[in-house]
């Protein structure tokens, strides 16, 4: 069961800040612990920046979810950019094509409970992450 999500178009640096603020608000609302709030907001910041920098922009949608036992927050990051040709390489710590530290994708995956990625070269990338309350 999930509620209506809130969507933010990601086109500029400022939109990445708005994504952080939206995720923070939702994380507080579903009562994630302080450390888990920090982790999900950090992961959202990394992935939203990827959407902007590597995907050429896109959108982010955040929703509070409830599986009957636990509450949580689910966030989708979608772009119609170049896609990722080699996922194993993209998830390697330190690998980057954009001059960053190469920690965004691999680091974000470590900070969430569920991580799903769908990507196709030339079509874009969609990443869905979920963080559950303990």
């Amino acid at each position: 069961m999930s509620e209506q999500g809130q969507r933010i178009e990601v086109v500029t640096d400022q939109d990445v800040v708005r994504v952080r603020q939206l995720v923070r608000t939702l994380a507080v609302a579903v009562k994630l612990s302080l450390v888990d709030q920090t982790k999900i907001v950090t992961a959202a910041s990394e992935l939203a920046r990827n959407t902007l920098v590597y995907g050429g922009g896109g959108w982010v949608e955040a929703t509070s979810v409830d599986n009957g036992r636990r509450k949580g927050i689910r966030i989708v990051f979608a772009d119609q950019g170049p896609g990722i040709a080699d996922l194993d390489l993209a998830f390697t710590d330190g690998y980057t094509t954009g001059g960053g530290l190469g920690l965004g994708l691999s680091g974000a995956r470590r900070l969430v409970d569920e991580f799903d990625i769908v990507t196709a070269v030339g079509e874009g990338t969609t990443i869905t992450v979920t963080k559950w309350c303990r």
């Binding site: 952080r20 923070r24 950090t42 910041s45 990394e46 960053g100 530290l101 680091g107």
Partner: peptide
Amino acid sequence: DIVDSFVGR
């Protein structure tokens, strides 16, 4: 309340 890889760098 957060430091991501960009701010860290």
